[in-house]
Design a protein around this nucleic acid. Structure first.
Lengths: 340, 340
DNA sequence: TACGCTAATGGTATCGGTACCATTTTTAGA
DNA sequence: TCTAAAAATGGTACCGATACCATTAGCGTA
């Protein structure tokens, strides 16, 4: 109403008038053209082109009770490990005429509530979560949300609805096993976050710990929970602390690639040969590590595949192709490069 | 309608009934609480909490004629230079209850049309474009779109509506001038894309060329339009080609940081000292170049500020604070590090 | 030719909010 | 105490689509 009449987009009614048909027929041409005769369809399509008609999503959503929107809530975008997933998701959804709404999860508890409400207000077809909204109050809100809730990059015990990811515990265990058995390092340390906000890193640590306790009965871990956020500098600090405390360490499993790169740089600075004097592995296989001259051994996560699977759940192409608890395990790859 | 009644969210009417007021009063409590008396407000708020009411955005948008949505169309997300801008934009908008829809622009012409239509269907408050939709047909579609169209990361001559960015020509000129005057390199080459799909890189080249023609009458450029996409490998190829053709080159201005890093790595591999034997500068100040052990001289783009300005245009906080052609120049910084 | 079935099209109510204007209640000033 | 203005609240039409059901047209078959 507030918009001046000459700026308004044409409506379905106007298209119908121009084509000499009823509104509902225009709707059919757009949504189920096979129900409309060829001649009528052509009249309507010509009218649509003449008026430059673009349907209004809000009206359709209100009337049909279903939006063409998927909401994704991930932590900060810049440098995010979720980008390949989001990118792939967005690509597939857009082919189905579905739009992706992106929101940040780097908020306080109160803001988080507002965020979630704002997303619910859109009545999305699906809600993709990387890690937010997991306290009890939010979970109850999520459970009655009435759309597909998909947690990604992890496989929680009790997914709210769906989960697409991999076991961070297994990944931690596998990498440790790989260092121990395939690479023959026997004094392996863990560098990363053991607890707190990064649940995934903690699970990787648990995997490391499980392997170590079974095979060496020794756990060497430098915990960054208090100090750091997993940036380059934390990697240098971590390497020094570990070598200080356990000088005979021959391999360090870092819970993130960026940490690992910091550790490699610091090791080189100290005159240590990587991997001869100290082997270092990472997690994530971020785009740049290889290209920037550090050929890092790491756990490659199948980010794109996660995006594909999520999209398929939402568009329903493969309904039923997952197991009972609705978790999809996309797995991971251990990639050996020159730092181990 | 299709959703079963017991899964339905409560409506404003239900809240109103529970609170014993009219629907419109509930609407006021949510949108302009200062118009409602304290007692009424509290009754309504309590009813909202009791029912877990979340308004339906589609209904509000339809009724008021304005959505709470902003659409951004950028090229592929992964590794994108636009992330800091998008992140900042998203942060500010969400504080105003506005959601950000993200779409990719890596499509064919036909797909592009569908993409644009899908965005228009949302009747967004603003449309943020990094580089897409610039052919004539699309421009005419955009000119009648009826919302704020904002082009970012560049300052086109005739912005469709608004533009927030910087002059890539000036940036190219400035960096060349910086290398020539401040760093005293006299044989400067350009490595990058001169023409074609990356308009911005081309503008930087024009800036380089303009300076060179004024001061040395010599243009040394290796054009990657045909061969590459600006990755590390292109940087190595480019460095070799340039030194092959113009062996006395003492500085290379690369049109992107990744190219520059490739060039630095290749120079080092060839046993050249950087910057003593060959100086290298980049463009963009991407997050990792510094951290990965290459302290690259580069042009730092104020990506976050662009996001802030775009958000301000959309929420209208600084209406009128830009010049006649509605272009905002956020400038750039030349950052000297150890590669020049 | 009449009948019945399918294909094609239309009428009308409705989704859940907001705009606009009307009405009632409260407050302030004389 | 009365009146006018301001504050608070309500009624109703409408935004632009879709759902549901009704109706008409087209066609083959008996």
């Amino acid at each position: 109403m507030p918009r001046p009449i000459d700026e308004r987009w044409s409506t379905m009614k106007e298209v119908a008038n121009l084509a000499g048909v009823a509104k509902i027929t225009v709707s059919r041409v757009l949504r189920s053209p096979e129900l409309v005769s060829k001649t009528t369809r052509e009249k309507v399509e010509s009218a649509i082109n003449k008026l430059g008609y673009v349907p209004e999503a809000a009206a359709g959503a209100l009337s049909s009770g279903r939006s063409q929107i998927v909401a994704a809530n991930i932590s900060t975008l810049s440098g995010s490990i979720f980008l390949s997933t989001i990118n792939q998701l967005s690509n597939i959804l857009s082919k189905h005429g579905i739009q992706l709404i992106l929101s940040n999860s780097e908020y306080s508890e109160e803001m988080e509530f507002q965020q979630l409400s704002a997303l619910i207000a859109q009545r999305p077809l699906g809600l993709v979560l990387s890690n937010a909204f997991h306290n009890t109050k939010r979970r109850s809100m999520l459970s009655r949300i009435g759309c597909k809730v998909i947690e990604i990059w992890d496989l929680p015990e009790n997914p709210i609805d769906y989960a697409v990811g991999f076991s961070n515990f297994d990944a931690g265990y596998s990498m440790t096993q790989f260092l121990f058995k395939d690479c023959c390092y026997k004094k392996i340390a863990f560098l990363g976050t053991k607890q707190g906000f990064d649940r995934r890193s903690e699970m990787r640590f648990q995997g490391y710990k499980d392997f170590q306790l079974k095979h060496t009965s020794e756990v060497r871990a430098f915990d960054l929970t208090a100090s750091g956020k997993g940036n380059i500098h934390d990697g240098t600090v971590g390497l020094n602390s570990i070598l200080n405390k356990w000088p005979d360490t021959d391999a360090i499993f870092c819970s993130g690639d960026v940490l690992a790169i910091g550790a490699v740089c610091e090791a080189r600075r100290r005159g240590l040969r990587v991997p001869k004097d100290i082997a270092i592995s990472g997690f994530g296989d971020i785009e740049f590590s290889n290209e920037y001259g550090i050929e890092l051994t790491t756990v490659k996560v199948r980010g794109e595949e996660i995006g594909t699977r999520v999209a398929n759940i939402i568009v329903g192409d493969i309904e039923g192709a997952f197991n009972i608890n609705k978790s999809i395990d996309v797995g991971y790859d251990i990639v050996r490069r020159s730092t181990t």
